[in-house]
Design a binder for these strands. Structure first.
Lengths: 330, 330
DNA sequence: TTATAGCATTCGATAAGAATGAGTGCTAAA
DNA sequence: TTTAGCACTCATTCTTATCGAATGCTATAA
């Protein structure tokens, strides 16, 4: 266990390093702790012993280790108050009623990107439990339809549907009416099942042509379920940090942002605001990711901020918490 | 005017530089032109005199100048044949009927990004001449509606609409029916006018509540018109080129890709495949942009490839031409 | 006239060495 | 337990030297 002075020392080092990105030497701490540099050095070597600090080379100042950041995040840092300006900007967005709430999330994460100079990510998909409110089909040409699905929470998805055989307007209408009759109110993750076991048999009994329409719509539905949206805001932001001041490092980070599979992994599982530092981020050893799950108005997903390991943990945590509270209170 | 040998020399230098990114010395050309390095040097200095070649320093080899690339593109390069593989991949996409054509464009530009290792951009918006095929409104809650607009070419847009006063289902239906009656078949760029001058007066005469619905829908419509989609594929690709092997250069390029205003400027005006080299690109002096307009199935826009100035002009031009032909023939 | 061989010259790239200084660990005394 | 003092380490910066790829120019040969 750390004593008060050690905690204070770690705090000073982490916060100073976050600000300057330079190793912290013992001398620069003296004034803050009212003791000599030698004393600081002794304490420093204890913290190094505990794997909370590191040196970049034998005679360099100290920087926090991954474990050091972790200790800081878990035991030392205090959530900051948001400054008036930030709150006003964000509140405006959440109280703009003509914005769908999911758009408000996207917009507010854009703002947070600007505010923090880090990169933000919004992963969202329409929630599985959303219920179908209506299915609409609009013919475009002989062989093409647009299928539109609207959920009770106001999500709209549409898909081009190509149909081999020509089908008449009335046949389309019949099929769609039939489908609507069965699936309105069905959660989207159960639609495929319902179509297969309840609607399909009915189709068989009536006109043959309908089979083609049914098949096309069935395919369209199975695609609806998977679609998730990914939005990465300002990848360039994080690359402005000095630790990425190297072309190959930058390329590596950048290609991570373009790797859809990796980005999708950011999807957060647990509740609350979670902090993943360095290797924990599964993204890059030099970054940290702070993320949280959201679920609102038939949409669920994860919002995340990606910054350097040397990130402003308290500020970011506070900002994300603010957004989460706004979402939850709606 | 250049003589044959000078043209051949310029061609060799441009193509070699495109391949290696290193200044080309006179010795390395000897074999290709069957003469001594001194002769090459003489010719080189003539080309330099004409501003077609440059040196990076007094005793360096030559690199093409902006004007040199321009001359190469306009007078020397021959469109290449596409190799079998590329054609097959791209053709597959264009002949997949379940893909809307505009999705096929996006998909094929993704592929071209991979193929060339450059960055591709697709700017698209639904064409102004598209006609409204149907307007649909679905209530979500007391104060929220979803307005959906479908055009004759199969474009679908939707918008959350917030309504101050509570309105009944039947009032909504009446208003929407009225709107539909007037605007089906109207090109979207004329919808606002038509709503204002033909539909609004009718609204005034019937129930007051309808005014609120009308207003909300009117706002929604005016927003539909402007929306354009922007897709930038693999910004990291271009940054792999050695001319961008510098952190600050990379940052500068990258932030350009995030600058929506600048990206929208890429919108191409003239027909055909156009090549903008260096400063002509209005993007960065070290990049070149090859772009072309497209217009298809009620969507129009620009596809562009952004690469280094040292880009594979013939290959990219051929690829873009191929896509353009596919689009136009559909 | 055109092409070439020869040569001094330029200048980037790479490496090696020297000086600087911020920072450390350790020891011995307060 | 704290601190002053001191030798030591090592990144950083600046100089200097060397190497070699390329050039321009000149004089000569075809």
């Amino acid at each position: 266990m750390l004593n008060e002075r050690q905690k204070e020392l770690l705090k000073l080092i982490v916060e100073e390093y976050i600000k300057t990105a330079r190793p912290i030497g013992s001398k620069s701490i003296c004034e803050n702790l009212n003791c000599s540099s030698a004393t600081i050095r002794n304490e420093m070597s204890i913290l190094e012993e505990l794997d909370l600090l590191e040196k970049t080379h034998t005679s360099s100042g100290r920087i926090p280790s991954e474990k050091g950041y972790r200790y800081y995040v878990d035991n030392i840092m205090q959530p900051k108050e948001l400054t008036g300006e930030d709150v006003i900007n964000l509140n405006k967005i959440f109280h703009n009623h003509s914005l769908a709430l999911s758009d408000a999330i996207v917009r507010s994460m854009e703002i947070i990107s600007e505010l923090t100079n880090y990169t933000s990510i919004v992963l969202g998909k329409s929630s599985d439990e959303n219920k179908i409110s209506k299915v609409e089909v609009v013919p475009i040409s002989d062989n093409n339809l647009i299928a539109i699905v609207i959920t009770d929470k106001g999500h709209v998805e549409h898909k081009n549907v190509f149909i081999q055989e020509k089908v008449s307007l009335s046949e389309i209408k019949q099929t769609v009416d039939l489908i609507n009759k069965f699936i309105i109110g069905t959660p989207i993750n159960e639609v495929s099942k319902k179509l297969e076991y309840e609607v399909k048999p009915q189709i068989g009994e009536s006109i043959k042509q309908q089979k083609a329409i049914y098949d096309a719509l069935f395919t369209a539905f199975s695609e609806f379920q998977q679609e998730a949206s990914v939005k990465v805001n300002k990848p360039s932001n994080i690359l402005k940090e000095p630790e990425f001041d190297d072309a190959s490092k930058m390329r590596s980070i950048l290609s991570k942002f373009e790797d859809k599979e990796l980005i999708n992994k950011i999807q957060e599982q647990s509740n609350g605001i979670n902090v993943y530092i360095g290797s924990e981020s599964e993204f890059d050893d030099d970054v940290a990711i702070i993320k949280t799950k959201y679920k609102i108005d038939g949409e669920e997903g994860t919002i995340a901020l990606v910054g350097p390991k040397r990130m402003n943990y308290d500020r970011v945590t506070t900002l994300l918490k603010f957004i989460k509270e706004n979402i939850d209170s709606e």
